[in-house]
Design a binder for these strands. Structure first.
Lengths: 135, 135
DNA sequence: CTAGAAGTTAGAGCACGCTCGAAGTCAACC
DNA sequence: GGTTGACTTCGAGCGTGCTCTAACTTCTAG
């Protein structure tokens, strides 16, 4: 249908996404990527859309979404536009979790700063604080 | 030395820190917690300082520090105030990594928002966008 | 004193997300 | 058409961080 048929090998895909060839195949096996198009010899030929999809998957992964849930999302996507609503809900829930995570990280950052400030004061003069006292 | 000898059982420790008794013992084995004081029967009796230390460990864990590095930090702490400088450096490096992580998460959050906005527009009217086109 | 709850150790097992090896096939270039 | 390198599948293996079991001991309340 589409006139431009730019298709890339697994190695090129790996270079573009930063994911190893092994992992790309694993993602396919795991149901995150639908069966990739093949050339006459049975070698994978990824499309531009595949690149975009994997990039999106990586975003989900890096924000802590487990493979199982990514698979769920991928399965919904397979079923076409009728699943837009549930996909939207899934993403919204994920974003909510991401934001909680962000809040926690910010709090940890603040606490770390306080701890580091204490250590800076201690430097040289042998002092102790909080959980540093020995029995 | 210290007059107040408030010491708690592993179950109480678990309740206070949110870490299971199994995991508390694992942390001890792993070298994250120094050998905990025991009562006459060989049962662990955690001190208040232990609670503070475990809380701090959890902060490191939740910000993605691997057990091995936490062990390193714990080992430095064992060696007393002379190791304040290296401990400070370790914490500073960790905070730097944490902040990079925060930056990435924020970017992911933004991207997710954009994606969600697109989905909201699509809702009902069967449209497609980015990596949604089928083949 | 005794029943049952809670603690102890050593070590096995598990969930997750890759990661790799082996053995064979295909592609690309001279 | 031969050689070299990329690709294929299948399945095993691995690193991390717990998590659990078994068999046994101790503690606590009645």
């Amino acid at each position: 249908m589409t006139a431009d048929e730019e298709r890339i090998t697994v190695a090129q895909m790996s270079a573009e996404t930063g994911v190893t060839a092994h992992t790309l195949r694993y993602y396919e096996r795991a149901g995150l990527i639908r069966p990739v198009a093949r050339n006459s010899g049975g070698h994978r030929r990824y499309s531009r859309a595949d690149v975009a999809w994997v990039s999106f998957l990586l975003r989900l992964r890096e924000t802590g979404m487990p493979i199982a849930q990514m698979r769920e999302y991928a399965a919904l996507r397979e079923r076409g536009p009728i699943t837009i609503q549930p996909r939207l809900e899934l993403l919204e829930e994920h974003q909510a979790r991401l934001r909680e995570q962000l809040a926690r990280m910010r709090a940890h950052d603040k606490a770390l700063s306080a701890k580091i400030a204490l250590y800076r004061d201690d430097r040289g003069q042998a002092q102790t604080h909080d959980e540093e006292q020995d029995r």
